[in-house]
Simulated scan of single mutants.
Amino acid sequence: MVMDRREIDDECDRLVCAGGDGEEPRVIISRLRMAGRSTVEAIYMVSKIYDLSLSAAKEMVVLSPEWIGDLRSHVAFHDDLEGRSKD
């Protein structure tokens, strides 16, 4: 379920006004994953909710337990492609 930009902004605004519902970023990140948000959506939302740079939000999201498996598969895919290009 991918949200359009307006829906993402509306949800972010609600969470920003609620102070992230008083939750720590790790809890919000987990809720975003369970809600089926994409990595990009989660990074954008965490950045906006907690007033972080995109770089800081990306680090929080991709290194979280909820997304670390995706990171590992992306790195493995990249390494495989790089290895094939050298053959």
Rank of each mutant, 00 (worst) to 15 (best):
A18C: 07
K48T: 15
S30I: 00
Y50K: 08
V46Q: 03
K86I: 10
V75C: 07
E66Q: 11
M60T: 00
S85E: 12
I49E: 01
L63D: 06
R33D: 04
E66M: 01
M1C: 03
S73M: 12
D21K: 11
R37K: 11
D51S: 10
S73D: 10
G69C: 09
P25R: 06
Y50Q: 03
M45Y: 11
D4F: 15
G83L: 09
G83Y: 10
I29R: 04
F77I: 09
L32E: 06
A57L: 00
V61H: 01
R14Q: 12
R84D: 11
L54C: 01
D4L: 02
S85N: 12
D87V: 14
R31Q: 08
E23V: 05
S55G: 12
V61Y: 03
L54M: 07
Y50G: 10
L54F: 09
T39E: 13
G19R: 08
D87F: 13
K86E: 11
I49H: 00
R84I: 11
D13E: 15
R14K: 13
A18Q: 11
D70S: 11
A57S: 12
C17P: 01
V2I: 15
R26F: 14
A56F: 07
V2S: 12
R26N: 15
L52H: 03
S85L: 09
S38L: 01
V2K: 12
D21S: 08
K58W: 02
G20V: 07
M34E: 13
E41H: 07
